[in-house]
Design a protein around this nucleic acid. Sequence first.
DNA 1: CCGGATCCTCGGTGATACTG
DNA 2: CAGTATCACCGAGGATCCGG
Lengths: 227, 227
Amino acid sequence: MVKRAYGQFCGVARALEIVGERWALLIVRDLLVGPRRFTDLRRGLPKIPTNILAARLHELEEAGVVRRRALPRPASGTVYELTEYGGELEGIVLGLGRWGAQSLGERRPEEIVTADSMVMALRTAFHPEAARGIRAGYELHLGGVVINARLDDGALVASAGPLAGADLVLTTTAPLRPLLTGEISPAAALERGLVRIVGEPDLLERFVEIFRIGPAGEVASRDTDFG
Amino acid sequence: MVKRAYGQFCGVARALEIVGERWALLIVRDLLVGPRRFTDLRRGLPKIPTNILAARLHELEEAGVVRRRALPRPASGTVYELTEYGGELEGIVLGLGRWGAQSLGERRPEEIVTADSMVMALRTAFHPEAARGIRAGYELHLGGVVINARLDDGALVASAGPLAGADLVLTTTAPLRPLLTGEISPAAALERGLVRIVGEPDLLERFVEIFRIGPAGEVASRDTDFG
DNA sequence: CCGGATCCTCGGTGATACTG
DNA sequence: CAGTATCACCGAGGATCCGG
C-alpha cells in the first residue's frame, strides 16, 4: 500500500514516512516562512531536481501537510502553503535547526545561505520574554541575504526581504554568532566593523538581548546559524 | 566531501545530513530507551537490512551521535549508545512521535509493535505535574509487548521488559487510546474487559491521569500511539 | 517566466547469503 | 553475536524539453 513503509505501528515511524524523505523537511522549512510558488522553492533549494520537488509536493499534499492554492488575480499562478497539520511541524523543524547548528562548523564554499533558512534561524534564537514591551522593525542583511523582523510586545514576525521604514538596518560583514553569544559586545562589534548599522545603536543592544544564543547554559553554545 | 549534502549552510540542513537518512531516527528512537546491541536493534527494526544498519551506525558514530562501547565481563560483546549530543535528539523524536501519531489511523496487519517504540510513546504521553508525589511501579502488556514504568515524584523511568515487584500489572486487550483520552472511564474499561489489571484499581486511575492524552485541548487528540 | 514532465545515469536501498 | 558480501532495483541527481 504505502511504498517504503517502515512496517511499525509507531508515531515516529509514521512521521518519517510522511516527512522523512529526502528534501521534504527542507521544503517544510521554507513553507513555514510563508506560502511559496514552485519557482520560489526552487530558488531556495537550488540543488533539488525539479522532478523531486514536484514529487515531494504531491506526497506532502496527499498526506495533508501541504495545500495547493490558486493565486488570485492579477498575479496568477499557484502557491503551496502548509495546512494546519503541516504548521504543527514548526517546533520540530526549529528543534532540528538548533540541534544541527551545533555541527555546522565553518561555512563551506559550496554552501549557500538563503533568506528562508535565515528567517528560521532567527526564530530559533528568539526569546519572547526579552521582547516584552518592545515594538521595533529590523532589516537584516546577513551573508548577502535580506530578511526582516518586526517585534511587537513579545511577538515576532519575521520574513524574507527588506522592510520599509525599518527602525534599524543591520548589515553583517562577519559571522554574527560572537555577537549573539555575548563573546563580543555590540559596541565592540561596531567598532571593529563586524556589523554596520543604520539607526539607533540602542536598538542593536536590544537586538542581541532578544536573539541571544548561549551562553553555554540554558542552551548549548554554538547552537544557531549566523556562522 | 560530505556525500549527499544539501549544500545549505543551515542548521536544519545539517541535521538532516546527519540523521535524515532512512532508518537513522528510528535507530535513535530505540537507543533513547537505552544502550542496545546490534542484534537488539535488528529485533526492534525487523525490516532494516543488516548492511544498512551497520552503515547507519557507522555514520552516526562518525557524526558523534552514537558511541560503541565494549560490554564489560561476563556478558561480552558490543553495545551502541547515544552520546550526549545524540541524547539531545529526544525532544525532536518525541515531537515527531506526537505529530506522526495523528496520522497513525488503524493498525495495519503488517505493522508491528515493538517494546522500544511503546516506551517512547509512553514518554510522549507523560505529564510530570500529574505525577508529583507519586511513587509506583507499573508493568504494561501492550499489544503483546511488555514494558515497565517507574514513577518517583514527578520523574518517569520507562524501559522495555517486565518489572519485578510492580504495584500494578496492566494488560490491554484493545486499543488503549480511549482510556487515555478520557472517552472511557477506568471503571468502564475494566468492566468491559478492555484492560485487565493485577493490583489496586486506584493505581489505574492514577495511570490515566499521568499519561492522559487529549482531550483535544492542550494537545490535539489522537496524538499518541496505543492504537 | 512559471510549472512542471521526460529521459537517462548512478548510487543508495532492500533482500539475502555468508563469514569471523 | 556481529557484522560483510553480493546483486537487483528503484529513487535521487542532472539535463533538457514542453505547454500555458
